[in-house]
């Protein structure tokens, strides 16, 4: 199986820096240190900005995020949700997006998993990718879909990596599907299963 070099990759998501734009409504979704992005943006936004906004914050590390939570609560946003995991927050995000009007801008900040899964949810709700902004904070761990069994392995930090489902050793390609919110994993040693390359920790 080919192992293309990074420079040629165009399906790899590119993350930028959040920058509020003209819109009728603003939705912020963040996890852990991604919450700091919202707080730093808030400093340069008008006081009434969050009247027309919703904040969904995922706190997976309650010991260290208390100051972020205090800051978010102080923004005076009438629709503030704080939940324990990405999976728990997604139904809330979907319901909110379904009720919104055109002209909603969505801002995502946080881990690779949060960015991928919230993007997938927003696209399922009919939002265009242009209505989404992303900023990466925290973990680089990837979601990887095994091309063979189709199972998705969460929090992949090594190259290659084991498929949690079928057990094949996967080369994690820099080929990314927004619909699956996952990178593609392809068996690395199919031609010679006795050749087992060492795992390197590269996505942590």
């Amino acid at each position: 199986m080919s192992q293309p070099d990074d420079s040629a990759i165009l399906s790899r998501p590119r993350y930028g820096t959040l920058s509020p734009v003209e819109a009728n409504f603003h939705v912020f979704v963040a996890d852990d240190s991604g919450g700091e992005t919202i707080l730093s943006l808030a400093q340069s936004l008008p006081d009434d900005f969050f009247n027309n906004a919703e904040i969904i914050y995922v706190n997976t590390d309650s010991e260290n995020n208390q100051s972020v939570i205090d800051g978010l609560e102080a923004l005076g946003c009438p629709r503030l949700y704080i939940g324990p995991s990405i999976a728990a927050a997604l139904p809330r995000l979907r319901t909110s997006l379904d009720r919104m009007r055109m002209g909603t801008q969505v801002y995502l900040s946080g881990s690779e998993s949060l960015l991928g899964m919230a993007t997938m949810t927003a696209m399922e709700a009919g939002l265009d990718h242009q209505a989404l902004q992303t900023e990466h904070r925290g973990s680089l761990a990837r979601r990887v879909q095994c091309v063979h069994c189709k199972g998705i392995t969460e929090n992949v930090t090594t190259q290659p990596a084991d498929c949690d489902h079928c057990g094949l050793l996967l080369f994690v390609r820099d080929h990314y599907s927004r619909r699956a919110a996952a990178f593609q994993g392809v068996n690395i040693n199919a031609e010679d299963p006795s050749d087992v390359p060492a795992k390197e920790e590269i996505y942590s």
Partner: peptide, 9 residues
């Protein structure tokens, strides 16, 4: 654009 519509729409 002023109402936040993406170009693609």
């Amino acid at each position: 654009a002023a109402h936040g519509w993406p170009d693609a729409h």
